[in-house]
Structures are given as C-alpha cells and as structure tokens.
Amino acid sequence: MSKAVLVDIRKCIGCRACQVACKRWNDRKSEKTVLNATPGLEWTNPSDLSPRTYTYIRFIGRGSGDDFRWHFLKIQCNHCVEPGCASVCPTKALSKSVEGPVLYDVEKCIGCKYCISGCPFNVPRFDEEKHIIEKCTFCADRLAEGLKPACVAACPTGALSMHERNEVIQLAESARSNGAHIYGKDEVGGTSWVYVSDIPLTELGLPQHDSKNPTAYVTDMLLKVGLLGVVGAGALYGLGVYSKRRSRLEKTVHNNCGSTDKSTASPRKGEE
C-alpha cells in the first residue's frame, strides 16, 4: 500500500518542529543560514532546501493592515506518484517504491544532475562534498519499521498526517468541497504529499503544473517537436522548389538576352 501525507497548512502554526525533527532523524549537520531577503518571505529560515536541509517552513506574509496574515508552507520532496526526477535519471538511481517514498540508490548514481532539472518542484540538491544527490527520503527507514516520518510524528497541530494515498485524496476532496484549495491530487500526475490551504497554493509559490505525468509530458513535447519538424521540412521543400524555378527562369531570360557570363575565375555550380 502506498503511503501519503496530507499537509493541511490551515493548521500549521509555523513552529518548525518538523524542520528540527527532520534534521535530527536524518542526521543533517547544521549550516549557516540567513533570513530570506525576498519581500513577503522575510521570516523564512533556512530560505531554501540544501543537501543538509530536506524540509523547511516557508513563511509567507499576505494582505495588509488588519487583513495581514502569515501562511506557513512546508516544502520537501513531494514523492510524486510518477516522479519527474526518476523519469529523466539515466541510471535508475531514483525510483518510486510501492510503499510511497521516492528512493535514491547511491550505488547507481553517476552524478549527471539531470534529476535536478527534471524535478518539477526544484527539490533534489547535489552535495558537492559527498558527491551525492540529497532530498527528503519520506523517512523510508522509519516507514519500514511501521513508524511515521519524523516530521509527521513531531507536528503538534495535526497539520501533517499520514494515511494511504486514497484516504489522503478523500480528505483533500472533502476539504475542497468545504471551500479549501488543494494541490498534489492531479498536478504532474499526482504526488504523495498533498496540500490543503485556504488560498490557492500557487499563490503561495508552488509551481503551476498541469496533470500530465512525465510520460504524457514527454510525449506531448515530442509531438510538438515532430509537428514543427514537418512544418519546417514542408517550408524547406517549398523554398527549394521556388528557388529552382526562379533560377531556371533567370537562366532562360539570361539566354534569351544572349549575354555571356563574365565569370571566368569562379563559375557557379551548374554553369560550367
């Protein structure tokens, strides 16, 4: 059965317990961080994922005056149902497990970094010291022991909760029917971390994606490339026919005028 996590950011209070729990369980060393300099994200710290930061809370200020509110958005690998990172990885070092986590096999990785560009959520990071890809593991080791991921276990408000994926989708759908916005049910073919929020998640900075899974995305792109190729080939053919006709016409006019070619040093092709 495939596990998934519901991230209900309406319940998040920004305590960062999940951030700390992740650091501790995954033995991530501390690193020097600074507050995010982007207006509206000022209290976000650390301000991005890194090889030592598998997850962080993005502090997003929205509105003004009495309407001002903070939204706390947990960022980590979304453990896509059909992961973009795994679909581009040439070595199959990344793969989706039946239990839910997208796993990384360090033995196979050649360090090409294609997964970094192939991930639709900008998640994988390359550790330049250890020469490996780093990203949230969904605490696959804890899952194997029947435990919840460290961040889910640490969350004091129930903003993070783990269930089977179909249950998560049901919970998300029922929140939606009550006016909430959801993200991850369909995006990029679906993810195993599904968000619920009171404002659209794309307004909080999650990328706008359609529901195409990686195979459909590549097929679609390939079709467009092919179509352009056909149009281009047609245009080239048309140009060829036109220029042949034109040069034939020019030759005829030239011959009828009875003029002779001045060129002796470099006769053009077909005129020798």
Binding site: C89, T91, K92, K108, G111
Partner: peptide
C-alpha cells in the same frame, strides 16, 4: 564534469544506459 569523478570507471559509467526512457540514456 560528472559529479562523482571518483566513480568514473567504465563499469560504473555503463549505468548511463539503464533507463531507455531517459533522454540522457538515448543521447549517450
């Protein structure tokens, strides 16, 4: 330029041919 130069042996590099649906495998 690969990120794991210590593993740039022919047998390890052969892993690049593992995933026939990856453009990098096809390109290689």
């Amino acid at each position: 330029d690969l990120g794991r130069p210590e593993l740039n042996t022919p047998s390890h590099l052969m892993n690049v041919f593992n995933n026939l649906s990856s453009m990098m495998t096809i390109g290689s």
